[in-house]
Design a binder for these strands. Structure first.
Length: 188
DNA sequence: AGATTGATCCAT
DNA sequence: TGGATCAATCTG
């Protein structure tokens, strides 16, 4: 049981590689006795202090400290006063980086079982967190523990097929970094 | 294109 | 302590 949890060494690598390989992985949320399970379909990489789109571009603060911390932990922040965004910390300790989980397809029934109830496609980090009851209480949560919130390996590796790369969303202020093709998605 | 909404950060 | 800023979403 739960032997497919992504280990810390998965996260403790190059952020772009992690962002690509998270596509097709299963995001799992356990909350008040219920378990939601879904496939990650869209991610964005935020990598290093040189990345002007990253919160870490201004260095260490109380808020960004988590991005410098142990990989495999959640970085959850509130944005625009209304929404939360879920990120997973990557790279070695003291290098600030994370992958934003933007979209996922949430299964409303166990995967193999055919059902008339449609799955939920959560396109957008705010909607994703709202549906999965993810807020700042999960900031700094260790995703390798396999409790409350974790990620499991995909049935098949999507990294080598069907990945679309594009500009990151909402980072027009980030000068030349806005051009980076650091957003990755797979078509369902 | 505008309104919403609150944590964060830094200059007072 | 005040105000500008913001990796979003919905409405029209």
């Amino acid at each position: 049981m739960r032997k497919n949890i992504l280990p810390r060494k998965f996260y403790s690598r190059n952020t772009l590689k992690v962002a690509r390989e998270l596509l097709g992985c299963f995001l799992i949320r356990e909350y008040r006795g219920k378990i939601w399970r879904g496939m990650i379909t869209e991610t964005e990489a935020y990598h290093g202090e040189d990345d002007l789109a990253s919160h870490a571009s201004c260095g260490r603060t109380a808020r960004t400290e988590i991005m410098y911390g142990e990989s495999g932990c959640a970085y959850v922040y509130m944005i625009y006063g209304m929404y939360h965004c879920l990120n997973v910390v990557t790279e070695k300790k003291d290098f600030p980086a994370a992958v934003l989980i933007r979209s996922a397809k949430i299964f409303r029934r166990p995967t193999p079982k055919k059902t008339k109830i449609s799955d939920v496609y959560l396109d957008g980090p705010g909607k994703l967190c709202k549906f999965l009851k993810i807020d700042r209480k999960l900031n700094k949560w260790d995703l390798t523990k396999g409790e409350k919130l974790w990620i499991e390996r995909p049935a098949q590796n999507c990294a080598k097929r069907n990945i679309v790369a594009g500009r990151r969303i909402g980072v027009d202020y980030a000068q030349h970094c806005r051009e980076y093709l650091w957003r990755f998605s797979i078509n369902l």
